[in-house]
Design a protein around this nucleic acid. Structure first.
Length: 355
DNA sequence: CAAGCGTGGTC
DNA sequence: TGACCAAGCTT
């Protein structure tokens, strides 16, 4: 009887989690909770948004830094957009940072500073989709929601030996994940599923020998676990070209621009440049004696490879650019740039020694 | 609803 | 070195 198997698996997973729960900065362990520690919905939300399509290793320091700068949702709601975008630099998917601010301001202004405690209400907030709404509801508010992320999809596809490829299999996997969800401790169960996927039921070489779910795992029984879940093949990435313009004023100031609020790298700081396509037209931000830098910047985005040529110019103190604005040498922090723009800076500053 | 949207780690 | 992958959301 499948439901009995699923029920036993859910229990075994919670037992495993009580012993093996990873120590993560945003997590309140079952042990800590027993000692009276409480779960802050703001921290759960912040971590879950950062963790969307992003590894724990990349998030850890960024999360702690955000908490120091903005310890509460009200503090974050009151932050300057540019400060938040600069702190998010390097994490990627910058729409998350824009939505993070929108969401914080909605919670502060429309919800009295308290996050809604149910998944459907959470779902109405910017940047909170099905996964994040369920995760916050389960982890922060102990709601019996089933949380389905990439880890859970993999664990469930293997446990029930689902052969349908993703993303078509998503509804079926969500339904099956519900079968594994126990009535008690939904938040711990959700985190246990994700920990299991991250540490044991890993994408290429699952450690079935130490898995708490081995007894009921159909994928293990058929020997196909490591090949699941199947996925429809991805399209190849085209190669696009572009030019980035680095302008240094005689006083050391650098010409930067804030990119439009939508689209690629929206809202982030960057060097003026051409469009990125097959044959970009030159688009220098001012008239100058442009010097090409040797080499190029290579960067891969989600859906294309980019090769950037970099042109450098030194301009007088009274130079007036067509776009962008000069940033004082001492206020410029490369770490506030998205990675592709930081690579441009690395190339420019490296070649000129001390630009 | 398929496509757009980043990055760093891993194999 | 390059393809794949990670605690997805939006339009």
């Amino acid at each position: 009887m499948r439901d009995e198997i699923a029920s036993k698996a859910g229990t075994a997973l919670l037992d495993w989690y009580d012993v093996h729960a990873r120590d993560l900065p945003w997590r309140v362990s079952p042990l800590a909770r027993r000692d009276g520690a409480v779960t802050d919905p703001y921290r759960v939300w912040l971590s879950e948004v950062m963790l969307q399509q992003t590894t724990v290793a990349a998030v850890r320091e960024k999360y702690l830094r955000f908490l120091v700068l903005w310890p509460t949702v009200e503090a974050l709601a009151a932050a300057e957009d540019s400060d938040v975008m600069a702190e998010w630099a390097g994490l990627g998917y910058y729409a998350r940072a824009r939505n993070l601010l929108k969401c914080a301001r909605a919670v502060a202004n429309d919800h009295g500073g308290q996050f809604p405690d149910q998944a459907d209400a959470l779902r109405d907030l910017p940047g909170i989709g099905p996964y994040t709404a369920a995760a916050i509801a389960a982890i922060a508010f102990d709601r019996p929601e089933t949380v389905v992320d990439g880890n859970v999809e993999r664990v469930v596809a293997r446990f029930f030996d689902v052969d349908t490829p993703l993303p078509a299999a998503k509804p079926e996997l969500t339904r099956l994940a519900g079968r594994l969800t126990p009535a008690r401790r939904p938040g711990d169960h959700a985190q246990a599923m994700m920990d299991l996927g991250a540490t044991i039921c890993t994408p290429t070489s699952p450690a079935c020998g130490i898995c708490p779910l081995i007894a009921g795992c159909a994928g293990r029984a058929t020997g196909r676990a490591a090949e699941l879940p199947r996925k429809t093949p991805k399209k190849p990435k085209p190669i696009r070209q572009g030019i980035a313009y680095v302008v240094r004023r005689s006083d050391g100031a650098l010409l930067l621009e804030t990119r439009p609020d939508r689209g690629l790298l929206g809202g982030m700081l960057g060097w003026p440049g051409t469009e990125w396509n097959d044959a970009p037209s030159p688009a220098p931000p001012l008239e100058a004696d442009w010097r090409p830098l040797g080499g190029e910047v290579r960067h891969t985005f989600t859906h294309f490879h980019l090769r950037l040529a970099v042109l450098l110019a030194e301009v007088p103190a009274d130079a007036l650019p067509d776009r962008g604005s000069f940033v004082d040498r001492h206020e410029f922090r490369p770490s506030s740039l998205p990675t592709v723009m930081r690579k441009v800076w690395d190339l420019a500053s490296g070649q000129t020694g001390r630009i």
